[in-house]
Design a binder for these strands. Structure first.
Lengths: 235, 235
DNA sequence: AGAGCTATGTATAATCG
DNA sequence: TCGATTATACATAGCTC
């Protein structure tokens, strides 16, 4: 039997819901990818699976990175973010201005992160006074540690056998060597200790050599969100 | 004439690209909405239109809010950081361009310096090739981690204050009643002063009362991105 | 730009292995 | 619980206004 029409409402059957989720997620990601390529835009997709796992996709890195960063920010910083509400900046008229400003902003952001990173790498626990700070630092270190360990395993397994885990560890890239579309699957908090828990979902475009890849390895919290009071909702 | 097959590559014609963008954006949003309803998940979508406008969609508030915060932060910080370089009204276009380019160069320089500094601290597991190197790195990280944790314990025993913030619990239990699907359209920098410039794109599901809503009012910059180093990619 | 139209390409619900 | 398969619903490229 072919496709039946369904009504858009919560699928009560849990198994079914999971199946539908992965199917539609794949479709959504493919479409996001296509849009990003066709229209040369940045598209980011984030979703929490029914089981609470976060998957994010961003063909063009940018937005994804913002989020990754954000997710790793400490409570303190999030709090800081909250009280600036009024974006005020000189408006420009030309497209070029805008582009240049975008570039500048991207660079500023880069610097911001670099500085933050530095502070993480030069951790002086004795100087840290807030719990949040320490926790953020700890998290970073854990993450790094995990990646190092993973790399270690990677190395040693490469020596032994060739590909035990190919479907999980492969990285794919679309035709252009740069701008790799990516799908990240973040574990839930409770899975913090699983080093491997990646999921790969290639767009699988017919006729194209799909060497798209995915990697995962970042276990993060998926619950550092709060509501934005300034964003009033209208009817 | 009906639908023709197209190849997934950048549409060169600008007008066409714009048209395709809006059509596909609508489709993508609808699909995201459906996924979120069918599977009862959070889905967030972010995209920059070819003209630089940011549209974000999030049926369930959470992720959207994260981004709003983040975007606003950088906006504010950018303002702080860029003081002294605001183009005056009297500046000519090319002068502004030049200023911007200079700023970019300065920032690039700054980044270069930071990166260099970072490369000393930053273990890039992907680049390490020897087991010894990795092991040494691991050890160091462990040591650091331990000191951080110690410090943490130290602190907490001293403060012993309440730590039971309820935000974690709240975030995972949201009620349908409070979470309206939304689509935000953020203005570009040049539109910064328009208070209202929202765009609404209801999923438009046949036969269902669309109570999906949209509002907009937040004008933000769309460019605070860069790569998060902890998210190492493996081959 | 934006709204419709229609032929056709695609996504996917149901089913089977 | 997964992949394949298939029939069908749906999205959308190319037009026109």
């Amino acid at each position: 039997m072919g496709r039946a029409k369904i009504e858009i409402k919560r699928i009560e059957n849990k198994t079914n819901r999971g199946v539908t989720y992965s199917k539609r997620r794949k479709g959504l990601i493919k479409k996001a990818y296509e849009l990003s390529v066709l229209c040369d835009t940045d598209v980011a997709l984030l979703m929490f699976s029914p089981t609470g796992r976060l998957t994010s996709f961003s063909p063009k890195q940018r937005i994804e990175d913002v989020l990754s960063h954000f997710m790793n920010l400490s409570e303190r910083e999030r709090g800081r973010m909250m009280h600036g509400t009024n974006p005020t900046a000189a408006s420009t008229t030309s497209q070029i201005h805008q582009e240049l400003r975008q570039e500048i902003n991207a660079l500023l952001q880069q610097i911001h992160v670099a500085e933050e990173k530095l502070s993480m790498y030069e951790p002086d626990p004795g100087k840290m006074t807030s719990m949040e700070e320490l926790e953020a630092c700890e998290k970073q270190l854990e993450t790094l540690l995990v990646s190092v360990i993973k790399r270690k395993m990677n190395l040693s397994s490469k020596v032994k056998a060739s590909e035990e885990e190919s479907n999980e560890a492969d990285l794919l890239s679309y035709d252009d060597a740069f701008n790799q579309p990516q799908i990240f699957d973040y574990g839930t908090t409770s899975e913090r200790n699983n080093v491997f828990s990646s999921t790969m979902v290639p767009p699988d475009i017919k006729g194209s050599k799909s060497n798209m890849n995915v990697e995962k390895e970042q276990a993060i919290n998926d619950n550092n969100i709060l509501s934005w009071p300034y964003m009033s909702q209208f009817k």
